[in-house]
């Protein structure tokens, strides 16, 4: 799915303001943009600056002898990148791969990683002031994966700590 398309079709939430004002705030970093996806009724967000691209579910090569939440590796234009099954990582049950299943390719510390998610919901903007530190509010998902919790009118978005998604405690697994 095209990222731009997503951004264009985004919901205008939170603050109403002109495009210019918004751009300034984004540039300042007081508004962050998130690519969000929904898992088990909870909406999660990934900082759009870390998102490299979003792919439809590609052919995945299983990677033996590694953590079970590693779905495998994919060929991204000649790069071999690992794909994290986010459901497994968060301890949810397995879900079927559907037409909506996406791989969000993120870049953290110079490495590309794919996050396999059930869907990609939208791009949301959220004011930094509306982001709270992680709490134990979110059931099932370990705090370590959470960077913060964004409040948006009537909904909450769990903002993910990307660097921990792949490597945290992996050795234990």
């Amino acid at each position: 799915m095209d990222l731009n398309e997503l951004i264009n079709t985004r919901e205008q939430v939170a603050v109403q303001m002109t495009g210019e004002e918004e751009q300034v705030l984004i540039a300042e970093g007081s508004i962050i943009q998130l690519v969000s996806f929904v898992l088990e009724d909870v909406e999660y967000g990934v900082d759009i600056l870390a998102v490299h691209e979003i792919l439809r579910f590609p052919e995945i090569t299983r990677l033996p002898n590694t953590s079970d939440f590693i779905k495998g590796v994919i060929n991204l234009r000649g790069n071999v990148i690992p794909v994290v099954d986010v459901r497994k990582r968060f301890g949810f049950s397995q879900a079927k791969v559907t037409d909506l299943t996406r791989i969000i390719v993120i870049e953290t510390s110079d490495k590309l990683t794919g996050l396999m998610v059930d869907n990609v919901h939208q791009v949301v903007r959220i004011n930094r002031n509306n982001v709270d530190p992680p709490s134990e509010l979110i059931e099932g998902v370990s705090e370590e994966y959470i960077w913060g919790i964004g409040r948006l009118k009537d909904r909450l978005i769990v903002i993910l700590n990307l660097s921990n998604i792949l490597f945290l405690e992996e050795d234990k697994v």
């Binding site: 990677l63 590693i70 590796v73 071999v80 990148i81 690992p82 490495k111 792949l166």
Partner: peptide
């Protein structure tokens, strides 16, 4: 291709 470039060394695998 190295696996380490984007991931890490996996036991039993020399690369892809």
């Amino acid at each position: 291709k190295s696996l380490e470039q984007n991931y890490k060394t996996v036991e039993g695998l020399a690369g892809a």
